[in-house]
Write a protein that binds this DNA or RNA. Structure first.
Lengths: 210, 210, 210, 210
DNA sequence: CATGAATGAGTGTTCATTCAT
DNA sequence: TATGAATGAACACTCATTCAT
């Protein structure tokens, strides 16, 4: 499956989509295929066959394949965004929130390993990613983290001698890397253990605290 | 460019091998194409044309496309491996070595941004990666880092209450993520600044140190 | 023309199927090419061009080339099967039926020499033949002969001191070999004469009967 | 492996070949490959590699692939020809000789199943076969059989009301067909049993002898 | 809203063959 | 006698895409 443009032809964008049966069937077929094989290995014909729908119909709804992928991802991302906001409520202190944030990320990646794999291996890889709708959604995520860091800096919990962007990248990079093997091999991981170690390292550093 | 197997067909393996002109031209053509476009978008026809060589010749030297990619990468990796070992010589203390290691990684990524992009976005993404020759080479890298961490734990510089594997992943993830934007957009980055911030975070943590 | 699998992808199997014009054109083009050259020498491009159809369409209807061949053969075979059953009706005695069977075989081979050539030289040669659908169809043929032999053994017309399978092979082998030169050189043959001699030999043996 | 012409460039034809090492290695490599895979699937590159010889060298000796095949076959055929003549010596009576001939054929096919497979499936299939050198050699075989039949007719052992050519074809066809499954699946066969049944059928016919 | 039929333009790969050395 | 390097031409197969109905 290849594609060039990122033309937006998202029926959802203009309001509550009527979501005709064909469209739903296509999305479901695509999701189920994504569980079995790489995005690049999925063909229109396969989707159509799995969905029990004509090939041509896919064009009606998703002009190009990347579009379909992004729409599926956007669904997940939107849901996570709601969840993370809810998950952080009632927690005091920036570091406490950060711990929760990290745990939530790992836990989500664990719950939806397929989705995580696609995001890390397929989407972020895509050269047009930073211009995509998906990227905009992930920025909302970023914002959640940045706010936590900001709060921590302001209230003195978090150091202020380092670029906040660098902190953010370190955190995301660490999370991602620690999850990568499990994601690639689709192995169960332990959010609690990973979070524990990650927070030790990220909060107080690798150095022995004397 | 797609491929199935990862069969090694390296004429170099049995000796110095004069490396016939055609082979060299192919590799150079491939490298130069890699600077312009994604690996997946590069075709045999393109390589052949760029190299001024017959398509069939590519097959002669590199059984399949992934093989060509891996051989090119292996070249870089071998070189880096030599360099990092040299670079660490004469440095005392695990954290000092770690700082140098981080700096070296970022600096290398900066010097060879194309290579870094391919490695992060194309190779590591590949499902057969962990069975590949390339992976074995990167494990040598890992070993260098692990030895530093080990030394640090033994001499009390580095904490011992965290899985060493988690430390390694955090470090690599952090480095990778901090370099990612520059790599993707092929922008110059500052190894010194990046290293400075990364080490602050990784050595003593995000938390305010008192 | 090469091929690997023998996957059945017969749109006809589930109903009457309008058999789209493209499919028909392909089959006809293929048949006409078969008259001119060996199966192995026929390319997709040639078929497509002859049929005035796109190459990809062949793939749509016949997953691989062997499949196309087998489907064409199956058509013939099915027709023959109906005919042979009809031809044997109203004949009394196993040897009389056998004579008719032999005559029918030779006559069919004569009528459709191209088909006969393909079957003998191309299909039966194919290593996957005995797993193919075509083979199953020819087994129906075999059954017709076996039933005749069986009847003859039971009613004392045919000897019972020889493996029935060996009789079958002798008969088929004899027919085939006697037709071979005509088939290869596409020369007219005389079913009556061939049958006469064959039956003499097969019924009462080479030995002088006194 | 494909080929068009049947150009004779047989170094043997002009006398006792010096048979340089390369040539021998090539033939041996080819023979051993023939045991493992179909003739069509064997490539020059493979032969050269197996023989430990350069690809180009094959051209020196065997202008085209069919030529190589035929030369290998000719070797076998010549040997068989000598053997059959020897085997028939000292046997009295046409039918006794015929029985021996049949047994010899089946036994040879059994001993060299690979060779038999090639001859039946690859060579005889080839459209230029009847113009080939190989065909001429097999005609020598035919002659042996024809002489037996002739003798039998003359001395009254064998019927004279049937074309001798038809007898020959029946015999060869029967032998071939009875051996075919074993040849294709490379299964051991019992020359004694096969001969016994074949001779019963061929000598006195399928019909119950009164 | 949905389909069946058909297309065009590639893709990686294969291989026999040639030739300078 | 033998080799390494290189080529040219094809081949089966793939797939996103279009369009009339």
């Amino acid at each position: 499956m290849t594609d060039n443009l990122n033309t937006t032809k998202n029926p959802d964008s203009t309001g509550p989509s009527p979501s005709p049966p064909g469209r739903i069937k296509i999305i479901q077929a695509f999701k189920s295929l994504l569980k079995k094989k790489d995005f690049d290995a999925i063909t229109w014909a396969e989707i159509a066959k799995t969905a029990g729908v004509n090939e041509g119909l896919i064009y009606k709804y998703f002009n190009n394949s990347r579009n379909l992928l992004h729409q599926v991802l956007a669904e997940y991302l939107k849901q996570y965004l709601t969840e993370i906001e809810f998950a952080l409520k009632g927690i005091n202190g920036a570091l406490n929130k950060l711990r929760k944030f990290i745990w939530f990320q790992i836990n989500s990646a664990n719950r939806e390993r397929v989705f995580a794999r696609i995001y890390i291996l397929e989407v972020r890889t895509y050269s047009g990613y930073f211009q995509s709708e998906t990227y905009k959604l992930t920025q909302e995520y970023d914002k959640v983290l940045l706010e936590i860091l900001d709060e921590g800096i302001k209230n003195g919990e978090i150091r202020d001698d380092v670029l906040i962007a660098h902190m953010r990248m370190t955190i995301f990079g660490a999370i991602e890397h620690i999850c990568l093997p499990s994601i690639i091999f689709n192995r169960e991981m332990s959010p609690d253990d990973f979070t524990e170690d990650l927070c030790k390292i990220l909060f107080s550093g690798l150095g022995k605290s004397n």
